[in-house]
Design a protein around this nucleic acid. Structure first.
Length: 456
RNA sequence: GUCCCCAUCGUCUAGAGGUCUAGGACGCCGGCCCUUCAAGCCGGGGACAGGGGUUCGAAUCCCCUUGGGGACGCCA
């Protein structure tokens, strides 16, 4: 594979497929800023038919953990960012050793106090030709000699990173702006080793609401935290792609569109604040257009997580019922977690329900008693298979017409009796989701509540 | 403190010297719809940080100020 560039028929010049990498240090969870960097690299690779490489920068053994490596990989998989090649820096030790020895032998590095130091040539200047920022010049007087090999024999980031990028034939280093000041050092390493540096593109930072670097201190920051809060991967991806990149006025992008449209020239340079409100909106958007069965399967987990159904019962909930809940509540929920809470009354036992006292007080009043009673009897006459919204509405309206009442007179009392709440999906959809037994039981239970209220 | 990056509505952004009395989206406010809450639809408020240049003409180019962020580790 190496050294077999394909020739572009058009201009006859070498045109190699780009090779980019995402190189996280495994010292914790994958946070959303890292995910955005990974996404841009992945999109760049996929758009150009290049390779997306995952390289774990674990040269600092004391801070790196296997757990973190697995979590980062799992988070990338959850987002659907697949990698073509995978490396761990700790497994590439001989590469760095050889390169470092060469620099030592050539006098481009020296040993002091057990560590090997890179000798920055002075006077001098290194210019970073950034694809996004333009040229950024660094005076060597401001760059101190830096350690390339620690006294314990391990290698430092700036050195290993450059050696790796060169060895893996990385063509474009796309990373967050916080690394810009490291770039001249890495270019120096390339030059000392007689290698051609890759192209660089430093992405604008993703900042927290407080306009500071993302940190665990304020709210959720990791990809999995958002997953556990009930966010969908496609929503998070869509949100992240719009942080620093745009395509005119378009806000909604499928993964395929992102790949087709992504271009470095549409990436901007100013830092972006992670605005959870917009993420919430996008998440609801994907909740609304997603496949109910797929979302229903996800809902199962949140019902358990929320303590709404015991773990051992979760598997026996029919997928159809879960999918129904999705369809009923997705227009009124921003996250799956919120949806699980709203739909809780459907999954609990028919006779048990938590009632909103205010709702009971204002709607389960004595004069509604006969109506509720009558409706319960009316609906009890329906067959199980007739418990579908259209048929329920038909039956209810017929009953209402016969008794000279209007729907709005009993809608809220019914809703409170059935769900315990004053808000929720359409009445008849709610009855259908509940099923005949629960509907009748709860309507009659509403009656009891009215009587109790009278006594009190 | 030193160095580096950045600067359009609260937020994400469009804008690549005239088409800008600056467009879209989220959020916010109001209305419509309606069995509630949502969703949806319609409407509203809301920004080119400031000052100098350059130019016939600047949100767009240059400089300064201010503001924000980042980096200054034998962390990455």
């Amino acid at each position: 594979m190496a050294g077999v560039p394909h020739l572009s028929a058009r201009d006859g010049r070498m045109k190699m497929a780009p090779r980019v990498r995402f190189a996280p240090s495994p010292t914790g969870a994958l946070h959303v800023g890292g995910a955005r960097t990974a996404l841009f690299n992945w999109l760049f690779a996929r758009h150009h038919g290049g390779a997306f490489i995952l390289r774990i920068e674990d040269t600092d053994r004391s801070r790196s953990t296997e757990e973190s490596i697995e979590e980062i990989k799992a988070a990338l998989r959850w987002l659907g960012l697949d990698w073509d090649e995978y490396y761990r820096e700790t497994e590439r030790f001989p590469l760095y050793q050889e390169a470092a020895e060469r620099l030592l032998a050539e006098g481009k590095a020296y040993e002091s106090e057990g560590a090997w130091w890179f000798r920055v040539p002075r006077p001098g200047e290194t210019v970073v030709r950034d694809l996004l920022l333009g040229d950024v010049a660094y005076d060597h007087e401001l760059i101190k000699d830096f350690v390339i090999r620690r006294s314990d024999g391990s290698f430092t980031y700036n050195f290993a990173c450059a050696v790796d990028d060169a060895d893996l034939r990385i063509t474009h280093v796309i990373r967050a702006n916080e690394h810009l000041n490291n770039t001249p050092r890495q270019i120096l390493v390339y030059q000392a080793l007689g290698l051609e540096p890759p192209k660089f593109a430093h992405l604008p930072m993703v900042l927290s609401r407080e306009r500071a670097k993302l940190s665990k201190r304020h709210g959720a920051t990791s990809v999995f935290e958002y997953r556990d809060l009930g966010f969908l991967p496609e929503a998070l991806l869509n949100f992240l792609v719009r942080l620093g990149w745009s395509h005119g006025d378009q806000e909604i992008f499928s993964k395929e569109e992102m790949i087709a449209l992504f271009d470095l020239k549409d990436v901007n340079v100013s830092a972006a604040v992670f605005d959870e409100e917009k993420l919430l909106w996008l998440n609801q958007h994907y909740l609304k257009v997603g496949d109910p069965e797929r979302l229903g399967e996800l809902l199962r987990g949140f019902l358990v997580k929320r303590g709404i159904v015991p773990p051992e019962e979760a598997d026996s909930i029919p997928l159809a019922k879960l999918a129904k809940a999705i369809e009923l509540f997705r227009e009124r929920s921003k996250t799956l977690l919120e949806l699980a809470e709203k739909a809780a009354f459907i999954f609990g036992p028919p006779e048990r329900l938590e009632y909103d006292p205010k709702g009971v007080g204002s709607f389960l009043t004595p004069e509604k008693g006969p109506l509720l009673e009558g409706l319960a009897s009316e609906l009890a006459g329906l067959d199980e298979h007739e418990f579908k919204a259209p048929r329920l509405e038909e039956a209810t309206r017929a009953y209402l017409a016969r008794t000279g009442h209007q729907l709005k007179e009993i809608a809220q009392p019914c809703r409170v009796a059935l769900t315990g709440k004053t808000e929720g999906p359409g009445l008849f959809e709610t009855m259908e989701a509940l099923g005949k037994e629960a509907t009748i039981v709860r309507l009659r239970r509403g009656l009891e509540l009215i009587h109790q209220g009278q006594e009190a």
